[in-house]
Design a protein around this nucleic acid. Structure first.
Length: 747
DNA sequence: CGGGCTGACATTTTT
DNA sequence: TGTCAGCCCG
């Protein structure tokens, strides 16, 4: 058996698999077989080291990773053994533990989990209650700050004690109220799942001891993506047995903006001085040519601790192709043309090709080109199934059936479908409930039990009571009915299909109704559970899985995907688009070194997805928010020696309607005569060349030094947006007397 | 109370 | 260029 498990593993992988005890840090380069190591190690622990699978916990970040791992383990160990293992995402595992033990924190175990949409709705209510303006205090920004605080385990009170700005003051007040409403709604947000588990462990050593006793062998995937709360969670659990096995790659850390703390992986050796450190450098995915280019890019980063040297026996392969497109349209048509050619040559099938980009907006042109070429494709991302409005509306009723105190769900459907409860009535209800000091549902209940002084007109009151009865009925029925029947009852009683037909035109109503039916179908999977558990189990999965098996890689279609989402995937042919200043690195990430380096890693992740051939593309100009803008090639491309590229000339390009000659990589080239708008004569094209490019450092006599954010040619002049120390300014080059600072940093 | 219009706005998003 | 929120009117 041991030979089976270790066969086909290289020496480093074998060492990782067979190191059973103590802290282990595995630094796994892209394509180095880390999932294989994780699964084989688990199998090894069980079959060779005799560890009871009940003692093993494996944590991942995504459901997809967890599912894959479990599938592979079933293959290695069989269904029976695999079911005894605990494999799941941080959030799912924490939710499970909290359902068991949250009572120790004085909370109910039947809490609902709020997703970001729910959070936003709740925050909007908070803002209204506190008389704060949504425009000046964007709910998402406030939630971002709260999320950060929660990741650091800073509660509302502590946060309020350390405010350093007006914004902090606002956040502090919102945080307190937000948290109070969460509690009142018997709800936890995603961050709470982690934070409350850590708090549970801290405040209740006996509970922690129970889990330490149970889980003696811990494995964490994508360790570079852990945030502070996850780090503390893992550390607490591992404290007793110290059998902690983490896998990660600092070079693939791309979620710092979401709270991931790269220090967790960099300091592992300090946390565990006796740690075994193993580097996986053999790559099984790509050609050496691709690896060389990717490594050149990443090695140019000043922030490397564990520099790996990736190698492969796959052979040198073809050089990385660098394509300079005239503009974004040309870029898209080039990519599509290449894919068509690869298919015609028999080298590839559509499913072998992936098109990657920094921002979702970039997919549009690509899609148009794919449609024209009749190439089948899918775009990863977009609105996920359980986030669709009609699905969430129906879900809101189900959540209320399980937990009527869920105020976000209650507000969501109190007037859907319309039953004459307008905004006015809702805010009266909110104010009244607050006066009474009770949750919204409780207030409705008071109203039903002839409360003396309520603020509602007779009509509003009867509408509210009708809604109250509906929720109360659902609440009563949930324990007696199978989930499918409950949903059928709900759909019939609130006349969902009719409501959709009223709100949308025929086609869209059909679409949305189909989604609702799809939700109904998903409920079938729970039919074999005891009736009283079906609804809760269903809602839990919906909250944490959040998507119906999205990426079906069985279909043979081109994949369009953001670089972030591409992590963990691989394709024979990869096209990375828009490798330009302002886009990659994104203009919003050019402010500080850390986010700039994260952009570099993002490109690195994209490049290392390629198995056989990699295309890197950039365009000289690009339509940005409807305006044509000059776009300079990314500084990152300069970090890859030209010898590693095979530059590809464009084979003819289409003229843009832009009337001026434009800068293209410092060389201006002539364009066909400007097209005229009918009726109005265009200004004579001034022989102007753009002088400034994004990322460039400039000096202004009054404003001082700054960095060019963007530059565009407008009516014979160049409009330059520059970020100065105090703020951004838009300047006209002809007036502003901007001076480029030449210290060799950029060109 | 709900439908249509106008103006600001604009990364990435594992759960 | 496209979306979303806020505003005005029937």
């Amino acid at each position: 058996m041991a030979t089976d498990l270790l066969a086909n593993l290289n020496p480093q992988q074998q060492r990782a698999v067979t190191t059973v005890t103590g802290p282990v840090l595995v630094l796994a380069g892209p394509g180095s077989g880390k999932t294989r190591v994780l699964t084989h190690r688990i199998a090894y622990l069980i079959t060779e080291a005799g560890i009871d699978p009940l003692h093993i916990l494996a944590v991942t970040f995504t459901n997809k990773a967890a599912r894959e791992m479990r599938e592979r383990l079933v293959g290695l160990l069989g269904e029976a053994v695999a079911t005894d293992l605990t494999v799941g995402t941080f959030h799912a595992i924490c939710a499970r533990w909290l359902r068991r033990d949250i009572i120790h924190l004085g909370r109910e175990r039947d809490f609902v989990i709020y997703d970001s949409d729910d959070q936003e709705r709740l925050m909007k209510r908070v803002l209204r209650e506190l008389n704060l303006n949504e425009k000046q205090n964007p709910p998402r920004a406030i939630l971002g700050a709260i999320s950060q605080a929660k990741n650091e385990l800073v509660g509302p009170e502590e946060f309020a004690r350390h405010t350093r700005s007006y914004f902090d003051e606002v956040v502090a007040r919102c945080y307190a109220r937000y948290q109070a409403l969460l509690r009142e709604s018997n709800a936890l947000d995603f961050d709470d799942l982690l934070g409350e588990t850590v708090r549970l462990f801290r405040e209740h050593p006996a509970v922690l001891a129970h889990y330490q006793q149970r889980y003696r062998f811990l494995m964490v995937d994508e360790y570079q993506d852990t945030n502070r709360a996850q780090y503390l969670l893992v550390r607490a659990l591992a404290e007793r047995e110290r059998n902690l096995f983490v896998v990660g790659d600092e070079a693939q850390s791309i979620y710092a903006w979401r709270g991931a703390d790269i220090r967790n992986i960099l300091q592992f050796e300090r946390d565990y001085p006796d740690a075994t450190v193993i580097m996986l450098e053999q790559n099984y995915r790509s050609t050496q040519a691709i690896l060389d280019a990717a490594q050149a890019l990443i090695n140019a980063s000043p922030q490397r601790k564990y520099a790996k040297r990736l190698w492969t026996t796959n052979g040198k392969g073809e050089q990385v192709i660098l394509y300079e497109a005239a503009n974004d349209e040309d870029e898209a048509s080039f990519v599509v043309g290449e894919i068509l050619r690869l298919i015609a040559e028999g080298a590839a099938r559509p499913g072998d090709c992936a098109i990657m980009y920094r921002t979702n907006a970039q997919s549009r042109l690509v899609e148009e080109a794919l449609v024209q070429a009749h190439l089948p494709y899918h775009v990863v991302g977009g609105v996920r199934f359980y986030e669709r409005k009609e699905v969430k509306d129906v879900l809101a009723y189900l959540r209320l059936a399980a937990n009527p105190y869920d105020s976000v769900s209650l507000q969501r459907v109190i007037n859907w479908p319309g039953r004459g409860i307008g905004e006015r009535t809702v805010s009266e209800l909110i104010v009244w409930a607050r006066q009474l000091g009770v949750p919204l549902y409780q207030a409705l209940s008071e109203l039903a039990g002839d409360a003396a002084d309520h603020p509602f007109a007779a009509r509003a009151r009867s509408a509210l009571l009708e809604f109250y009865t509906l929720i109360a009925d659902l609440n009563r029925l949930r324990e007696m009915m199978a989930l499918g029947d409950l949903i059928d009852y709900l759909l019939a009683r609130v006349e969902v299909q009719a409501a959709l037909k009223r709100e949308y035109d025929a086609d869209e109503a059909d679409d949305r109704w189909r989604n609702v039916q799809e939700l109904r179908n998903a409920a079938l999977a729970y039919a074999n559970l005891p009736v009283e558990n079906q609804l809760a189990a269903f809602l839990e999965d919906v909250a944490l899985i959040a998507d119906v098996d999205s990426l079906d890689r069985h279909t043979d279609v081109v994949t369009c995907i953001t670089l972030h989402q591409a992590k963990g995937l691989e394709f024979p042919y990869v096209f990375v688009l828009g490798i330009e200043e302002g886009l990659l690195p994104h203009s919003r990430s050019q402010t500080d070194r850390d986010s700039l380096e994260e952009e570099r890693r993002l490109l690195y992740v994209g490049m290392t997805r390629a198995q056989r051939r990699l295309y890197l593309c950039h365009a000289g100009q690009r339509a940005l928010f409807g305006r044509v803008t000059a776009s300079a090639r990314s500084r990152f491309l300069a970090d890859i020696p030209p010898a590693l590229f095979k530059p590809l000339r464009r084979r003819g390009y289409r003229a843009l309607p832009a009337p001026q000659p434009v800068m293209f990589n410092d060389r201006s080239f002539n364009q066909p005569p400007a097209r005229r708008e009918s009726g109005r004569s265009a200004p004579l094209p001034t022989p102007l060349k753009a002088v400034f490019f994004p990322g460039q450092r400039v000096r202004h006599a009054t404003f001082g030094e700054g960095i060019v954010v963007s530059s565009r040619l407008i009516e014979g002049d160049e409009e330059v947006t520059v970020r100065f120390p105090d703020r951004e300014r838009r300047l006209l080059a002809s007036f502003a007397r901007l001076e480029p600072i030449t210290d060799g940093s950029d060109r």
